[in-house]
Design a protein around this nucleic acid. Structure first.
Lengths: 184, 184
DNA sequence: GCTGCAAAAGCAAATGCTTTGCGTTAGCAT
DNA sequence: ATGCTAACGCAAAGCATTTGCTTTTGCAGC
């Protein structure tokens, strides 16, 4: 039986906080014993709950990617999408953002969850637009045109990402309107 | 002074071979001492030359990504691009391909080199087409429309990638023709 | 509330990976 | 041939990781 409350929750929060604190201090290569000491637990606790360092980092990174608020409703799909993309690019452009995406991409499980997160957000924008009677591209088209290029730059290049890059992506995503659909 | 020939080269080949052999045998989590033993060198040699396991795996992965031949010339940019994309998707779709991309994405240096590799290939297709007098999209547009979506699926989803996916990407990349340029 | 069960944490020993200092080998230049 | 030194081997030291066992503590049933 799983046991979500009380001490377990306290330990989880403590460990997550420790990771974030150490990352914030710019600790280059953090280790499990280091995190454990900071969190006031023994290393074996971390190994047993998370498996290894990569899994733990992915877990923390995934939590950071969780949007703290709904995407803004700016009146039309184009401006909604632009606002969302700008925020996404902005979050990922910082060294911390790069680190987060890198951390989450390494293990198998969490990476899928990360992709799902973006899908949920974009689908919300789509549904909102469909509610207004707008024509919008399919979800997968948006993933290909917006999310994938950003992730690719972060992981495979040293390029600077800025608001102009975001603007170009959105423009391009809406340009063709080759593939527009009406629902899921 | 660097020293590329003789024993160094022999060691490098031996270690690379050992990694590939162990990966081919389906060894789940390979370790440096394991690789060293297989290659007939001491672990410290590997640590000094490659730094750590991730860097070594990235190095081997990068070598695998090296195209063994020029992309086929099929007569037109559209068919060239389709052939290239199909081959790219095919290589990456296998479990080994996924592993390779994952390995290469982790450290900073090699990831850029990997991106450069794709750029070189696609730029070759572009120049060939320009030589024929064709109109072709900008390189960065191709990266966004073809390479990024494939990499994204590999790293962030468990989706099956197939020839149809490749076809859709190419179709989409050439559909708008919004951004066509004439050279670098 | 109290009690019993078992999940999760602590502790410490054992294992195994990584680092490092130093002696040796062997490319490469003269 | 000889000298120089990058790169390797070896072995010891330093840590990270695993594991068996004990203790704590959340939760369910009285």
């Amino acid at each position: 039986m799983t046991r979500p409350g009380g001490r377990s929750a306290r330990v989880q929060r403590g460990v997550h906080d420790a990771v974030r604190a150490l990352q914030a201090e710019g600790t280059a290569a953090l280790t499990v014993p280091q995190i454990a000491a900071r969190a006031g637990v023994t290393p074996s606790t971390i190994y047993r709950r998370w498996g290894d360092l990569a899994d733990l980092l992915a877990d923390v990174a995934l939590e950071r990617l969780q949007p703290e608020s709904e995407p803004a409703d700016t009146g039309s799909f184009g401006t909604d999408l632009l606002a969302w993309t700008e925020q996404y690019v902005d979050e990922m452009a910082s060294p911390q953002g790069r680190g987060v995406l890198r951390d989450v991409a390494v293990p198998q499980g969490p990476a899928c969850a990360c992709g799902q997160l973006n899908r949920t957000q974009l689908e919300l924008l789509r549904q909102r637009a469909l509610g207004r009677g707008e024509q919008v591209p399919e979800l997968e088209h948006l993933i290909n045109a917006i999310v994938a290029p950003v992730a690719y730059r972060i992981l495979f290049t040293a390029d600077e990402l800025d608001a102009e890059f975001a603007r170009d992506l959105v423009e391009n995503a809406l340009a063709g309107q080759a593939r527009t659909g009406s629902s899921t």
